[in-house]
Structures are given as structure tokens and as C-alpha cells.
Simulated scan of single mutants.
Amino acid sequence: MDLALLRTFVTVHRAGSFTRAAALLGLSQPAVTWQIRTLERQLGRPLFLRRARGVTPTTMGDELAHRAAPHLDALVDIVEAGLDDTSGARTLHLAGPPEFTALRALPALAPLVAQGLAVRSVFAPGTEEALAGLAAGHHDLAITTARPRSGLLASTTLCDEEHVLVAAPRWAGRLGPGVLRHKGPAVLEQWPVIEVHESMPLVSQYWATVFDGRPSASAAVIAPDLRAVLECATAGAGLAVLPRYLCQSALERGEVVALHDPPVPPLRTYLLVARTGTFGLPHIARAHEWLARAAVDW
């Protein structure tokens, strides 16, 4: 059996789509389709059911993926390591959200870097993007906010982050003591909102969790990096919802003010994800363990 066909099959299985697999493999979609059909003819069984959005593996497809994927990953690791490499130095490829990766994960790995580990990071704002790259072998570890659906990826909980509704003092001064608690979010309807995306994921989650509703305003400022959102809020551009770890120093300095203190604040869970079978590689196992231990204090 052609290993190239198996590699394409495993990539489609992990990506859940011929289109995404083609992009990850650097092939055209017709080429991926031809390779899968060729493998199905060789096996005499369908491996995927075609859906309106992507593909779903058949029972045969799931069984083949779970049997073949660990061995293909091991072959890739052997090639990447180099058979005559005796230095022990390896490169860790890490993907994750820009702010969390920059402010928490990468600094936590600094002691390992000092001991010889090389690190290459990719900022992947979306979980789907990070998991697709991990499944295709582009990354060794990925930090996400959703558990992978594939059984070929293993996840470990890192930490929960609390979300805080903040604004600059001049905005906060418009609210009297207890006004937001008694009158609800209607008092904020005319306030400009700063967010990372037009869908306002953080503000919408906060409103749903704390106020049991949806925000009525659209975002006034869109900045796809929470550090930029914090800077805009500090400058007085409007209200924002930010993770506490990111805005805690600004809160302590009085540059922004927490507008509300709900009894149950919204939380977002961060996960550390790896391909199953890759913990046999010391540099991946050690980085995984190091991040998990550091997360205890996060």
C-alpha cells in the first residue's frame, strides 16, 4: 500500500474535509479526492461519507486511522529527528492564541530554551486552525479553548481564565454605585464596545453568562489581539471584556476599572493538545509537562 495514500487519508480524517486536507498537504482538492478514491478501491470499502460540510469517516475509516496514524507520525518524527543526530537538541513547534501564547506559554518555556530546546511558535487565533495544523503535523503542541473531537488528538486542561468587564475610569464614573447590578446591562447600551471580532465573542459570552441576554450594540473597535483591546480600553475608547490575567496590572494601576463583580464570572478553559503517540519524543513530553506544571500558578 502506498504510504502517500495513507498520509493523505489520515490528514483528511483529522481535518474532516477534503478542502482543508488539501490546503494542509499543499495539494489540489481533486488530487486529494483521487488519492482517497484510489485507496478505497484498493481496500474495497468506503472510508468516508460525503456530507454537505466536509466528510465523516465510516467505521472502516475510523479503524484504519487509529491503526495507521501513530505509525505514520512515528515515521515523520524519525525523518525530522535525523538518524545520525546525536546532539539531542530538538525543535518544538507550538501553536496557540496570540496573547496567551505570548504572555504565558512562551515565557514558561524559557528554562527549557536555556537548556537547549529550540521553540518555533505560530499564533493561531482559532481553535479549528490550531487543531488542523496539529493533526497535519505542522505543530507538536497546540493551545486551544475547545477539546478536539478526533480520538487521534489528546488534550490536557491547563487553566481557567476569568473574564472581566472593564472600561477606563472616565467611563466607569458614569455609573453610580450598584447601578449596573440593579438596572442591568441596559445602562450600557450606548457605550462603545471594543472586541476582537465582529461576532463579539467575549462580550456575547459575558452577556449570556452574567446578564442572561445578548448585547444590543455592535462593536465600535475591532482589534484581533486582546493586548490591543486593552490598550484601546485604557485610552478610553469604550468597554471591553478581557481575561483577568491580561488586565490585572492595568486594574491595579487604575488605568481601567472593573464595571461589575458577578457572583459567577464567565470562564474560558485553555487546553494543551498533542497528537497521540508523540509523547515518546522527549522534547515534546518535557515541554508538555513543563507547561502543565506552570499552569498550576496561572
Rank of each mutant, 00 (worst) to 15 (best):
R7A: 05
H13G: 05
A22D: 01
L24R: 13
A31W: 01
T33K: 04
T38W: 04
L47R: 04
G54L: 09
T59A: 14
M60Y: 07
D62R: 14
A68W: 10
D77W: 05
I78F: 14
V79H: 09
D85F: 02
T91M: 04
L94Y: 05
A95M: 02
A102I: 01
L103F: 03
V113H: 01
S121T: 15
G126M: 08
E128F: 01
H139V: 07
T144H: 03
R147G: 06
P148Y: 09
R149V: 08
S150H: 08
S155M: 02
L158G: 06
D160Y: 12
H163C: 07
A167Y: 02
A168D: 06
G176D: 06
P177Q: 04
V179W: 01
P185T: 12
E189W: 05
E195Q: 07
H197C: 03
D212W: 12
G213F: 04
I222W: 02
A228C: 04
E231A: 15
C232S: 11
A235M: 05
A235C: 02
A237Y: 14
P243G: 14
Y245G: 13
L246A: 13
G254K: 11
P263H: 12
V273T: 15
R275G: 09
T278A: 11
H283K: 04
I284C: 04
A285F: 06
W290P: 00
A292M: 00
V296Q: 13
